[in-house]
Computed example of a mutant assay.
Amino acid sequence: MTLNWNTLLPPLMLVASNVFMTFAWYGHLKYKSSPLAVAVLASWGIAFMEYCLAVPANRIGSQVYSTAQLKTMQEVITLLVFTGFSILWLKEAITINHIIGFVLIAAGAAFIFRA
């Protein structure tokens, strides 16, 4: 696979979209005293930005990646972003069991990219 914007841009956009989506889904957990309606509305606004990145990433990426590869890439990126988010934002520990589980998922995902 030749490296060009069509191969590089989708993963970069998916990382950025995942940051938005992780904040949309889990960011409010740091502010549990705020009303649920506020959390929902704020999450929708943040999720809109995620869609603004994920949809074009998949459209551009479909020129060089299969749909299965794009979805697999998204899932692995989600785990990486979520791990960083859990540690840095929520101050939660990642255990060895989490790491082993994530590595097994990533190993399974690697088969999707085998030629």
Rank of each mutant, 00 (worst) to 15 (best):
E50T: 10
E50S: 12
E50I: 02
E50Y: 12
E50A: 14
E50V: 06
Y51W: 12
Y51A: 14
Y51H: 10
Y51M: 14
C52I: 14
C52Q: 12
C52W: 08
C52G: 12
C52M: 15
L53K: 08
L53P: 00
A54I: 12
A54Q: 04
V55T: 09
P56S: 06
A57N: 07
N58C: 13
R59K: 15
R59Q: 12
R59D: 13
R59T: 14
I60M: 07
I60C: 06
I60T: 06
G61W: 02
G61V: 11
G61Q: 00
G61P: 02
S62V: 06
Q63N: 14
Q63I: 15
V64L: 10
Y65G: 12
Y65R: 10
Y65A: 08
S66G: 07
S66R: 02
S66P: 06
S66Q: 08
S66D: 07
T67V: 11
T67W: 10
T67Y: 02
A68V: 10
A68W: 07
A68M: 10
A68C: 04
A68Q: 09
Q69N: 05
Q69V: 07
L70A: 08
L70I: 08
L70E: 04
L70S: 07
K71G: 07
T72E: 08
T72K: 08
T72Y: 03
T72D: 11
M73G: 05
Q74Y: 06
Q74C: 08
E75I: 14
V76P: 00
V76R: 03
V76G: 05
I77A: 02
T78G: 11
L79E: 05
L79M: 15
L79K: 05
L79S: 07
L80K: 04
L80Q: 03
L80N: 01
L80M: 11
L80R: 06
V81L: 03
V81A: 00
V81W: 00
V81Q: 02
F82P: 01
F82R: 03
F82S: 12
T83F: 01
T83G: 10
T83A: 13
T83E: 03
G84H: 10
G84R: 12
G84K: 06
G84E: 11
F85H: 05
F85L: 03
F85P: 01
S86Y: 03
S86H: 09
I87F: 12
I87K: 08
W89T: 10
L90K: 08
L90T: 12
K91G: 10
K91H: 15
E92C: 06
A93F: 11
A93N: 10
I94M: 03
I94F: 01
I94L: 09
I94K: 06
I94V: 15
T95W: 04
T95H: 09
I96K: 11
I96R: 13
I96L: 15
N97E: 11
H98I: 07
H98S: 06
H98K: 06
I99A: 03
I99T: 09
I99Q: 02
I99C: 09
I100T: 12
G101Q: 07
F102R: 07
F102S: 09
V103F: 10
V103C: 13
V103R: 07
L104M: 15
I105W: 06
I105V: 14
